[in-house]
Amino acid sequence: MGRTMEWAGNANHLAGLPRKTVITAVGTFAKAVAVLLNSTSVHNADTLLNHVRSRPPGVPLITVSNHMSTLDDPVMWGFKGFPTCNAGLQRWVLAAEDICFKNTVLSYFFRLGKCIPITRGGGIYQEHMTEALERLSDGEWLHTFPEGKVCQEDEPIRRLKWGTASLIARAPVTPIVMPIIHHGFEKVMPEKYIFDRRPPVPLWNKDIKIIVGEPIQFDIAKLKQTAIVTSRNSSSFSKEGWPPLGALDEAAQRYLYIDISERIRSVMEKLRVIVNKPKV
């Protein structure tokens, strides 16, 4: 499978003007929803801002968050002080192909908005995951929703898909991995509002809370060695034909991705408990 309209996501496409136009427009919308229409509070915002603006050259950034509505991205970046309209600093994000890339117009729009289409169920070695890996290799910032789908219930973080873990493990330079948990977007854009449908526009006068966690440290070399040892002493998985990852066969990769995913999920769950604590 080829890469859907990848040329439109190139920063040099038509001198970058279409991208700047779309990101400025979407960023302005995000600011309006987050700051003007609703009340948004962000804990530890400076940590995120510092890593977006001034992390070491060539070091990629991966942010991961829960997924509570179709507006999470871009509105979660609309808080006061965030460079939401800066096309150069704005994130790349994995977006569901069946929703955001249904036709040529949508594909072009979301590509200009630095979205990478992901085929649900397509596996971690699908072509567009390779594209995401290339963006990380360029030292870019990538956002993912590792739970894989919207969930508006106040429930523990679900088992994470392995795609994010595979990107962390396969990136030439280990990314800075930053967890973010938010609450309130499910009230701004509820899935079942009228006749079991979303409202036509974002709702207002809602409280949005965002907690930015500290970067999660990964010693990938050590985790790979542990995965190799663990896979030798355990029963084998059913194989899907994954290519080797250095010295790791498919079984070892699975243990590696499970380990990384669970470390991320554990941190996200701790932040979820904090963000949902009632104020005393």
Rank of each mutant, 00 (worst) to 15 (best):
V273D: 09
D259R: 13
C85E: 01
A227C: 12
Q253W: 10
N50Y: 07
I211T: 04
E131R: 11
S236E: 08
M68I: 09
A247F: 07
M68V: 14
Y255V: 14
R254V: 13
W242T: 00
N205P: 14
S266Y: 13
N205C: 09
V33P: 10
V35T: 14
C151Q: 12
C85R: 15
K80G: 08
R198A: 14
G81V: 02
R111H: 07
T174I: 14
T70Q: 05
G122E: 08
L61S: 02
T230C: 11
P172A: 06
I181V: 15
D154K: 13
W7K: 14
Y108Q: 07
T144K: 10
F101R: 02
S235F: 09
G9R: 08
E186L: 02
I116P: 14
C100V: 03
I211V: 12
I181H: 03
I228P: 13
P215A: 06
L136C: 04
A11S: 15
F109Q: 06
N38H: 08
L106S: 06
T70A: 09
G123N: 05
G58R: 02
M189C: 10
P18I: 06
D207Y: 08
G88V: 09
Q126H: 13
W141L: 02
T70I: 15
Q152W: 11
I194C: 00
K209S: 06
S39I: 13
H51W: 02
I194K: 15
R91D: 12
K80T: 09
W162N: 07
F237W: 06
T119A: 07
Y125S: 07
S234A: 11
A34V: 03
P146L: 05
I194R: 10
M268E: 08
L142G: 00
I168E: 01
I220V: 09
R198M: 12
L142M: 00
N233M: 13
V177R: 00
F195Y: 04
V26G: 14
Q126N: 01
V22L: 09
C151I: 15
R263F: 03
M268C: 01
V22Y: 06
S39P: 12
R263N: 15
F218G: 07
P18T: 08
F218V: 04
I157H: 01
P243I: 05
H143V: 05
D98Y: 05
P56F: 00
A87I: 15
Y255R: 00
N50C: 03
